[in-house]
């Protein structure tokens, strides 16, 4: 632009009349402005959503106790589970990951239950007096085989049973895993 125009007095016009503005320019500003803002937000949201992409922890085979360590009368005993744990970037060797109840149901037969209540994840207690598992959070009660005892229990499913194995030396190995709380089905986490 080389021709010189006298500067127009701005006050005489009505600058607040948007109709006179070039619509294409406005649309372009909004698009370009929106795009440059969207990129960093999108990058951030993508990273924020990363946990949805990670696989379930799965199960770990853990040696918990030996047959000799379990009472003959079928009373449940509680055991802490120590296993290798990966928490985001850190790998923790042999650290606490949960707990189980183990009880005898026969000479070489056991029942292994995860202590976590399937309702909302509290730990259930074994109440010897009533010979049941009772959840102190919202009063779910379970029979010793893990099935729901009282119809008032809010838990959507029985206690989660875990697989186990007894090796030649009599050691008890448990396939330890956790399941989503609040669901009717057992969904591994």
């Amino acid at each position: 632009m080389t021709e010189k125009e006298p500067p127009e007095p701005t006050s005489g016009e009505s600058p607040d009349d948007p109709q006179r503005r070039d619509f294409i320019k406005q649309a372009a500003s909004v698009c370009v402005g929106g795009a440059v803002g969207a990129v960093p937000i999108a990058a951030g949201v993508a990273v924020y959503l990363d946990p949805l992409d990670k696989e379930a922890t799965g199960s770990q085979r853990v040696k918990v106790t030996s047959l000799d360590g379990l009472p003959d009368d079928g009373r449940p005993r509680k055991f802490s589970i120590y296993a290798d744990k990966k928490d985001a970037w850190t790998t923790f060797p042999k650290s606490p990951v949960g707990a189980v109840y183990i009880m005898r149901t026969g000479e070489k037969a056991l029942k292994v239950l995860n202590v976590v209540c399937p309702h909302a994840g509290c730990f259930v207690d074994y109440i010897a007096r009533d010979d049941e598992f009772f959840c102190p959070c919202h009063d779910s009660s379970f029979k010793k085989d893990g099935n729901i005892k009282s119809a008032h229990s809010p838990s959507p499913r029985p206690l989660d049973e875990l697989k186990y194995e007894i090796d030649e030396s009599g050691a008890v190995w448990v396939e330890f895993m956790n399941f989503l709380a609040g669901q009717k089905e057992k969904v591994p986490v």
């Binding site: 080389t2 010189k4 500067p7 070039d22 320019k25 406005q26 500003s29 370009v32 402005g33 440059v36």
Partner: peptide, 26 residues
């Protein structure tokens, strides 16, 4: 100075230029 063009408005003239510049930076 000197002003070589007619007076303008921040919106949308300068905003568009700014947005394009931001796009170039990005």
């Amino acid at each position: 100075k000197p002003h070589k063009k007619k007076d303008g408005m921040f919106w949308p003239d300068q905003v568009l230029m700014d947005a394009v510049a931001c796009l170039a930076v990005l």
